[in-house]
Simulated assay, not measured.
Amino acid sequence: MSELEKMLSGDIYDPSDEVLTMLRAEAREITARYNVTPRRDLAARTKLLAQLLGGIGGEIKIEPHFNCDYGQHIFVGNNFYMNFGCVILDCAEVRIGDNCFIGPQVGIYTACHPLDPIERNKGIEFAKPITIGDSCWIGGHATINPGVRLGDNVVVGSGAVVTKNFPDNVVVAGNPARVIKALTT
């Protein structure tokens, strides 16, 4: 099994692998071009996102500076907006539904490191996918941790650290995030 296959299956992998290193370099080149492409050049920006991401819906807007590990493991739906300075570490798949809005400085992280310091110091990693449902709003400076699944219509308060799954129609906030309000639809 290749290191890429191990990474995508959630197994321990070596991120210094030549193929993974090349894929990250390609993603950085595309994001660098994207981040300096004028906002008024919508066609060029959309073309770069289509080249970078694994799948995009219609009406996608990502403000600079956007950074990701690979890009190709990120899938976003229709009517997507991501504000300034967001980071997605997509060592596993990140799936974001339709009508989602992400505030500035949000981090979405699939990458994990061993808790044991001897293992961690070897530089090995593993990853867990993240799924964000339809019509979610993630407030600025929130962090979405590996393996999290957010249901539809979830609102994540600014600065929240989301460490577990949440069902549809809730507002979550805090560190660690917890339900602070149920939403009625």
Rank of each mutant, 00 (worst) to 15 (best):
M7W: 00
A127L: 05
G123T: 06
G147Q: 07
M7H: 02
I96E: 02
H141W: 14
G174V: 04
N165V: 02
D134Y: 09
P38I: 03
S9L: 01
H73L: 02
E3D: 12
G151C: 09
R120Q: 07
V94N: 04
N67F: 10
K181T: 08
I88T: 05
L53E: 07
P114I: 04
P114C: 04
G71L: 07
L89D: 01
I60A: 11
I130N: 07
R149C: 15
V170F: 12
V87W: 06
A142L: 12
G54A: 02
G123M: 04
G107K: 13
L23E: 15
G140P: 06
G157Q: 13
A182R: 15
V171M: 14
A32D: 14
I74F: 07
H113Q: 13
C86N: 14
V76K: 01
G55Q: 12
N67H: 10
E119D: 09
C91H: 12
V170S: 10
L48S: 06
A111V: 14
G139M: 06
G103F: 04
F75V: 05
I130R: 10
D152I: 05
T185W: 09
M22A: 15
V179C: 14
N145W: 08
R120N: 02
K61Q: 14
G57A: 03
R33I: 09
G71A: 08
G159D: 11
E5L: 01
I60Y: 00
I30Q: 05
L52A: 00
P38G: 12
L4D: 01
K181N: 08
V36N: 03
V36T: 14
G159E: 04
A111F: 05
G10L: 01
Y13E: 02
D41G: 00
L52I: 03
N169L: 09
S16P: 00
N35H: 05
I96P: 11
R149Q: 14
V87T: 13
V179M: 08
G10Y: 00
F66W: 12
I96Y: 04
E59F: 01
F80W: 03
C86Q: 10
R149G: 07
P64A: 10
L183I: 14
M82A: 15
I74R: 06
G159I: 12
R149V: 15
A43C: 01
I130L: 11
E63H: 06
L53N: 05
D152G: 09
R120T: 08
I180T: 10
A92S: 12
L115G: 02
F66A: 10
C136H: 12
I138L: 06
V76H: 07
M82V: 02
Q105H: 15
I138C: 11
F126A: 06
D168W: 09
V171Y: 10
M1N: 11
G103L: 09
V170L: 10
R178C: 11
G55I: 04
R24T: 11
G107F: 06
G103P: 05
D134E: 13
G157P: 08
G103Y: 05
T37Q: 06
I138K: 11
T110F: 03
A25V: 04
G54K: 06
D41V: 00
H73Y: 15
A111Y: 05
A173L: 07
